[in-house]
């Protein structure tokens, strides 16, 4: 059974980077797929990769991660200005990040406005 866990921005906004990453990794290690509201900073992503590497063992193979932007690609000028202001106000709250255990998610494809998750089961079915 596939379990998705939504993590709202409010749940991690007061945490420092270390605590934030600990929380996310704990959920992933419970074999759940995280739908995180917003995006991680680049230094948080590299720290997440680093911590993931520290925890890899025979059971835990690592993570898959992908982000989806909330911003439309072909925006008019005024819309772009509006987006800049919204980003200033909401910061990293915009967009969506998917993080899951590599043992369950084999591949994430971004198209770029939609995300496709290929799980272990789907891969096996595909091979048939």
């Amino acid at each position: 059974m596939l379990t998705l866990q939504f993590v709202p921005h409010s749940e991690i906004t007061d945490l420092n980077s270390e605590k934030k990453i600990q929380k996310l990794l704990k959920i992933v290690r419970e074999e759940k797929i995280i739908l995180l509201e917003g995006k991680l900073h680049s230094n948080e992503k590299s720290e997440l990769i680093r911590k993931t590497m520290e925890e890899i063992d025979e059971r835990f193979k690592g993570i898959e991660i992908e982000e989806l932007d909330a911003q439309a690609k072909d925006q008019a000028f005024l819309q772009k200005i509006r987006t800049v202001f919204i980003n200033l106000l909401l910061g990293s709250r915009r967009g969506l990040t998917i993080i899951g255990p590599a043992s369950i998610i084999k591949e994430i494809k971004k198209d770029p406005d939609k995300i496709q998750l290929f799980t272990e089961e789907q891969k096996k079915k595909k091979k048939k």
Partner: peptide
Amino acid sequence: GIATKIDY
């Protein structure tokens, strides 16, 4: 190389 997963 930097990766998010490593599976023996």
